[in-house]
Nucleic acid binder design. Structure first.
Lengths: 245, 245
DNA sequence: GTAGTTCGATTGTCCGGACATTTGCATTGA
DNA sequence: TCAATGCAAATGTCCGGACAATCGAACTAC
């Protein structure tokens, strides 16, 4: 196996990034089979005309992604795993769209309200200060799927109802220059109340999947707090957790 | 602010790790307040008698943990976030114990069975090959909390019923030298069947929180597959998702 | 044959330096 | 007054080298 690797030094793309992308593509494509050794770093660096730290940086980024494993004294090998693409912090809208489900959104509420104690604590703003409140019904194939209630700090972005119905909240945030970083989520279940049941076309007492989430941007600011309710027959959460060492 | 930092060069602990631990402790302890600059890398390196790459490695590890943010041309600052400790891949047993709940386990089944198609696919073993099957009832304060059904590949570790009742599965795996790396989880909800209801002291049709998980070690091997059912009144999932870039 | 030892291979850690890129601010100019 | 320019500061990228720690396998001794 002679893996074709090359870097373009005239490109503004960092060299280590070029290399890591090529390696990732090779793994994804099957050119590098699970369990196979990657060849030692020194030789790889020499072959590409790069220094060892640069090669290490490329490899390390793939190790962090869980695609490679390094073993001292042995070498670096491709992980032997079914899981190719770790699931990340995702948007329900994007999830549905990439699943080919043609999502639709109906905005029920889009207003500004004083923050309750709960919302204020989650967003890190003063109690009774103004926050956006939006409530949406998310549908797929015309069937209700989830009821979404979100709160956003003021002056973060302008929430146009038409835009909210055309796309997802995360996408609007990214478009407004907000870099999402992490989210703290709580997932539970409970029986539907009468009003919830009606909104979601379920019966009273039917099990609902609930999710509460606070999303943070890269500066650690809370940019969104939400309480969502999903129909468990239509949706379940799928994600990958990594051990942090 | 004169943060006290020092490294011990005679220690076998890597220098970058010593530094990152001290910085993390300072953030946790409040000596470094959110939003405050960390001082530039060059000066920090000089003060500690370290090279810049070593200091960068320490800082980078904290950036990966979400505690710091770097901005080119500005500096490195402490993240302004309520979330101090990102939740990691956790064990129900440990969760309960650290919450002071004195967990107990009752082993219902502990045997070896041929792998069904579903189990074989999850664990990456041949269909009908031998796998361990354990079913456990997890209690807290004497109250049933969850019903856990797990499958493990053979010859991974010996599953002693007494040990299983004394501690959690993850802890047994770690003690056997298995380095857990990641887990793919699916969380959903549904109504309890009659037998499930009886096991968990719920009523038939009551909402249950369900979780399916495949856990991988650092070589990418699947080391555990499980189907769990939780009483939503007693337990909910709380975790933090990071955006992977 | 088996257990212990040695040795080569490979990654882990660390250094000191160089230049590029981006940011924020002060200065300058219209 | 306001916008454009220039400058300093900080992180981003990259280099080439050095030594340490660990693993696996071949080898040796019993």
């Amino acid at each position: 196996m002679e893996l074709e690797l090359s870097v373009d030094r005239s490109s503004p793309v960092p060299l280590y990034f070029q290399l890591s992308q090529q390696l990732e593509a090779a793994i994804e494509h099957g050119a590098l089979t699970p369990g196979s050794l990657l060849g030692n770093e020194i030789e790889l660096a020499a072959r590409l005309g790069l220094s060892r730290p640069t090669v290490r940086q490329a490899i390390q980024s793939l190790v962090d992604k869980g695609l490679l494993v390094r073993r001292r004294g042995v070498g670096t090998q491709v992980v032997h795993s079914q899981v190719k693409r770790p699931l990340e912090l995702s948007s329900l809208y994007d999830d549905l769209e990439s699943a080919g489900q043609r999502p639709a959104t109906k905005v029920i509420v889009n207003t500004v309200v004083p923050a309750s104690a709960e919302v204020a604590a989650a967003l890190g703003v003063a109690e009774d200060s103004d926050v956006h409140r939006i409530e949406r019904l998310r549908l797929a194939h015309g069937e209700p799927m989830a009821y979404l209630c979100n709160f956003l700090p003021p002056a973060l972005l302008d929430l146009d109802t038409a835009q909210l119905e055309a796309t997802g909240l995360y996408r609007l945030m990214r478009a407004a220059g907000i870099t999402l970083h992490s989210a703290r989520q709580t997932i539970g279940a409970r029986a539907a109340t009468a009003t919830e049941a009606e909104r979601l076309a379920e019966e009273e007492g039917a099990p609902l999947l609930t999710m509460q989430r606070v999303t943070f941007d890269d500066t650690g600011r809370a940019v969104e707090y939400g309480t969502h309710m999903y129909r468990p027959s239509r949706y379940s959460f799928e994600f990958q957790l990594l051990v942090r060492s």
